[in-house]
Design a protein around this nucleic acid. Sequence first.
DNA 1: TTTAAAATTTAGACAAGACTAAAAAATAAA
DNA 2: TTTATTTTTTAGTCTTGTCTAAATTTTAAA
Lengths: 218, 218
Amino acid sequence: MFTLAEENYLKAIFHLENDCGTGVTTNAIADKMDTRASSVTDMIQKLADKKVISYQKYKGASLTKKGKSIAVNIIRKHRLWEVFLVEKLDFQWDEVHEIAEQLEHIKSNELIQKLDSFLGHPDFDPHGDPIPDTNGYIKPTEKKLLSKLKKNQQGICVGVKESSAKFLQYLDTRKIGIGSSIKVIDKEDFDQSMTIQVSNKQFFITKQISENLYLKTI
Amino acid sequence: MFTLAEENYLKAIFHLENDCGTGVTTNAIADKMDTRASSVTDMIQKLADKKVISYQKYKGASLTKKGKSIAVNIIRKHRLWEVFLVEKLDFQWDEVHEIAEQLEHIKSNELIQKLDSFLGHPDFDPHGDPIPDTNGYIKPTEKKLLSKLKKNQQGICVGVKESSAKFLQYLDTRKIGIGSSIKVIDKEDFDQSMTIQVSNKQFFITKQISENLYLKTI
DNA sequence: TTTAAAATTTAGACAAGACTAAAAAATAAA
DNA sequence: TTTATTTTTTAGTCTTGTCTAAATTTTAAA
């Protein structure tokens, strides 16, 4: 059985490894977990003892099969709870992350199986992130960062990379959400800022925004 | 903010105080929490520092107004989650306690308020225990232990005192549940054992059983 | 009312998980 | 390639919540 702290480290390592494709450094983990590098060293040594990560001194860490499976299960729980909060309890999509961070650690396989049924086996959470299935399989989705699109290309918003409340509220005030159709009207070479069109309205957005919106191009 | 351990102590002290009407002893808490008296001493000193219990050395502890309000809120959450698990996720009444023990510690007032609405503001949990309202008010219910009834008296089962899975399963196999009509057919003076009738079937039950079933008499 | 037993508290230790400061290793710069 | 910088690890400390063993207080018995 894993403690709350251990589960959070596994989740963080999973996300980092996923984003960068490679093994993750001590500092990267410390950064993500908002803790000190020395604390991370302690923990990754413990996790290595438990065979959930492979780790060599000074060489960073990466999840073992077992570690990955635990991490994915936590993410599955997180995303299912998010669906519950939005679909059943009428939360806004920017309000659910913190609560799901707590709920994801509830230990009961039967609970998650029943919750999944109750929600009708959803494929995506309210931010467009795919929900891993019972076996930990995550359906690969072809999605592109808005920042990768060129002038005049368009697509449907299928997810957000960053999901902080502030960013989500930024999107809300501009009526951008999962399913929104977005077209690049203009793109500035110099700083990658864009003018986009969302249902007849045009907005100017910075690179920071376009790098956090996933689209399915048409 | 209170830690998980602190919350569990407050809840235990609340239940003990409620059952016995009086301040609770260190040993009673240790017993309930399945821990050592010395650990309890440590914790109740900490809780006294935080002004949630009043405590004098060697004299036992009792909740302050603030402590009581925290404890009741945890109990409210526990019981609401139990309703959710049984009503929405189709759990049996003997399966929900452990999961609710985890869920009761999730911190979010908005979550509980929305959960309560979603469930239609239930008054009782699946074991017949009243759900405290937002202000911590617990509607007093006139219920009697089956063990207090005399020969030929009858009532409707409105709750169970003990709610271990084993006891609940014992009731299930005899088709006794919340709402069952129970009549005392015979009562043995010597050991308080009874013969009871539940919808045309008669059962012999020991004092241990009759002391854990609450009835509303008619 | 003095003594014996039970209950409670103190003292000291330990594990988990975090921290600071300092040492060691790896990487980048000159 | 040697030096400087950054990264990582070690050593030692702290807090929370637990434990055992011993000391103290309270309660029950003689």
